[in-house]
Design a protein around this nucleic acid. Structure first.
Lengths: 230, 230
DNA sequence: GATCGGTGTATGGTCTGACAATATTTGGTC
DNA sequence: GACCAAATATTGTCAGACCATACACCGATC
């Protein structure tokens, strides 16, 4: 193995795995060689291979399973949400980020998504929004309400058709979950929020992009009073 | 150590380190205990501690240095750019993301940032933008031009005051660097781009938010013809 | 032939001990 | 006081061993 890029062994393993993924045209669902085999092929210790796999797992690129058979070992996957959620949580713990910034970024993504979605949303996503609306109506607890509220807003983001934004939005939602549950507790009721949701849904399915953006801005301003409208 | 959350040992180490960071109020710049000490305190093997540290390093939360003294060991840091850049690059390799999505997300962030920045940018960032403009004027190669172009757009994002968006923008810029260099090569000149840049700068310092958004939209539409204006 | 059950085995997960590489600290010498 | 050599603390790496897990295989039984 070339000793060129990166002095640490596991970084070279990382680069080599990345190279193989590109060269071999591996796709999500495909399997990587076992740790022992990789270690022997690359002439490195198994611990270096393991550290490289840990990095790939952290980046949401592989999932590791023990045992035997076609599902065992390191399998290529696609889960940036987990990485981003961890990233946000830990940087909040370190006070490198503020809740305010997270809320503002969410507002940005939802405004943009609403505008895009209003151009021509896929039925799949508007159906998911409708289902979430009904589920929120019959939610018995704030926790349950917020779970479906998250689904609604994620479906709205998905409707814009940008998977990167969707991944970021999922991570933001995960991070804001507790915050949102508390907010619903304080509010005591969800009628206003649901009215907003229905306005958003209507604007996206039958209104103009400007209507959709306005509806989202109005709603998030109510749900997160700190947020500054653009 | 409690065996409650997560079956894998290194995940428990991860949780314990995170708990200590929160409880001890550790901040960026502070040092974590050494690998051996952590292993003994938590009654786990050193390899488990190392895998946990590798995860934290991947998430841009710690940097590890060998040797002795106050700078050795795992030091808390703040570098989400690196994580996000890796995330984008690897997901592009796996075709889980498209260049188009990255460009659209960049457009979204810059539009939002321009609107926010026009409300009242800090002198620090407008100065950085001015410096980048001058550097672009005297750039001898497309590579050099793009380096300062990135600095300009990052300064614009910084001017909006959201560090999360700035981190995402940095990662997006890193990912688009090659693409941008090729685009400048094809274009053959940079006069139009610089004219756009000056319009953006003027709009942010003396114009309305709507002017700033329009200037950014116009510019990115020219630089990345694929991008769909909102 | 089909089904059930036990055994084998490949795989990740972990620990231990050892050594190498590196950067600082320490102490001795001029 | 300045400079150089040795001690030391730290991460980086490897090798080997063992455990837990989940499937594969094969034989016995119906």
């Amino acid at each position: 193995m070339a000793k060129l890029t990166g002095t640490r062994t596991f970084e070279q393993v990382l680069a080599e795995i990345e190279r193989r993924i590109i060269l071999s045209g591996l796709r999500v669902g495909d399997r990587l060689p076992g740790e022992r085999q990789l270690a022997e092929e690359l002439q490195v210790g198994r611990s270096s291979v393991r550290e490289a796999l840990r990095v790939l797992e952290t980046l949401g690129l592989v999932e590791c399973q023990v045992g035997r058979g076609p599902n065992a070992g390191a399998i290529l996957t696609y889960d940036p949400d987990g990485t981003l959620t961890d990233l946000l949580r830990l940087n909040l713990s370190l006070s490198s980020l503020t809740m305010r910034e997270i809320i503002d970024t969410r507002l940005m993504i939802e405004q943009w998504s609403a505008g895009q979605a209003a151009h021509g949303p896929h039925a799949e996503h508007t159906r998911a929004m409708t289902a979430a609306l009904a589920a929120m109506d019959s939610a018995a607890t704030p926790e349950e309400f917020v779970a479906h509220d998250m689904a609604f807003h994620i479906a709205l983001t998905d409707a814009a058709g940008n998977t990167l934004n969707s991944a970021i939005m999922r991570a933001l939602s995960n991070t804001l979950r507790h915050y949102a549950v508390e907010a619903v507790h304080r509010l005591g009721h969800t009628a206003d929020l649901q009215a907003d949701h229905r306005l958003i849904h209507t604007a996206i399915t039958t209104g103009t992009p400007a209507d959709a953006v306005a509806a989202v801005t109005e709603h998030l301003g109510r749900a997160y009073p700190l947020a500054t409208p653009m």
